[in-house]
Design a protein around this nucleic acid. Structure first.
Lengths: 195, 195
DNA sequence: CTTCTTATGTAGCGAGCAACACAAAAAGAG
DNA sequence: CTCTTTTTGTGTTGCTCGCTACATAAGAAG
């Protein structure tokens, strides 16, 4: 049993609100006053719980990955590599154009480029995107071993291509391109898939 | 002949230096002290010449488009739509991984997301990206009229797809992906082209 | 030369930033 | 109850931000 005055706010809900702010405004554009307002707490509570603005941001990134974990698992556990690619692209289109959440992808909107004292933010985001690309590559390597993909297939190149399309789709979604238009892009992109 | 004390700095060179700063750090991450240091001038000179930080940024965007104008013309004047797509993708790979300049694309790195008082920056960038997409679409509509593309082809969808791939490539380049790896992505993306 | 116009350098403005000091408040442990 | 521990709200810190006032310097026009 924890001792001391109990926390008056729900951590998950606060992270959810902070996530939306970082997502819409980016790391540098999200001021502490904007964050505390959205989270419904004052700054000392924020610092007690997350240490710093950067600490809050990383907690938000974890929260974001956790929320998408089920979706991720569905993609990687598809029966064929082709189906995984389909689920990935069409799933991303839906997520990036979900009207309940900011458009695009937090891993890009969060901070593609930052000031001299904040370079670790873009780096952290790039690291997480790269981890996702590697998970795809491993899935395709497995597909090659089981004969699902031809022996001439290049798992790394396929994973890279899909990530490029995903990032591009997220950018377009953030710029206002509609869900249907992006579905067209996804199916066009899939026509490059080696069968 | 202009009257008064002559300007002591070269505008084009100053814009070039400012461009690199905005490109590396983004609009919000690029502080005025960083900009003036790179441009080799003091802030009053900057404000006399460009009006404001935002004015400087837009001048930099014009400068950026101007510098790429020849490249743009070469793409749009290709003899076939397919060749235009090829020149576009491989040309972008080279530009986005040019060791003489920051990686990626200023139209993305410049400010994908910004704070509440700076929302016009992402909007301005999105507008310029959309204009480029529309130029592509017009090129493909022309190709359809001349029989270069099949009557069933969808110029808007093709242009959108290419822009998605371009944006994705620029993102990957900014994250450190090599030129050769991105060339692989470009040729894979082109295999989706309708022939 | 003097006068006019424009650019430059120094120095500083108010505002907003991230982060914190401090004391009051709310629980469990004894 | 008292004591201890943790959270909360108020108020503020030092700092950097974008921007500018002001006096001086450098050329063209007369």
């Amino acid at each position: 049993m924890t001792i001391g005055r109990p926390r008056a706010f729900d951590t998950e809900h606060a992270l959810d609100q902070a996530m939306k702010v970082f997502w819409r405004l980016g790391y540098e554009g999200a001021s502490l006053s904007e964050l505390t307002k959205a989270m419904g707490i004052n700054s000392p509570s924020l610092y007690a719980a997350f240490g710093s603005k950067e600490g809050l941001f990383k907690a938000v990134l974890d929260h974001y990955e956790m929320r998408r974990h089920r979706c991720t698992a569905e993609i990687l556990s598809a029966s064929t590599a082709r189906m995984a690619a389909e689920r990935l692209l069409f799933g991303l289109v839906d997520l990036a154009t979900d009207p309940e959440e900011p458009p695009g992808c937090l891993f890009l909107q969060g901070g593609l480029s930052c000031g001299p004292d904040t370079q670790d933010i873009p780096q952290e985001l790039a690291k997480r995107r790269a981890a996702w690309e590697q998970a795809l590559e491993q899935r395709f390597t497995r597909a090659k071993e089981t004969g699902d993909l031809k022996p001439t297939a290049d798992p790394a190149a396929l994973a890279r291509y899909l990530c490029v399309v995903c990032n591009g789709i997220a950018i377009q979604a953030a710029s206002g391109t509609s869900r249907d238009e992006l579905r067209q892009v996804a199916s066009l992109a899939l026509s490059a898939w080696p069968d």
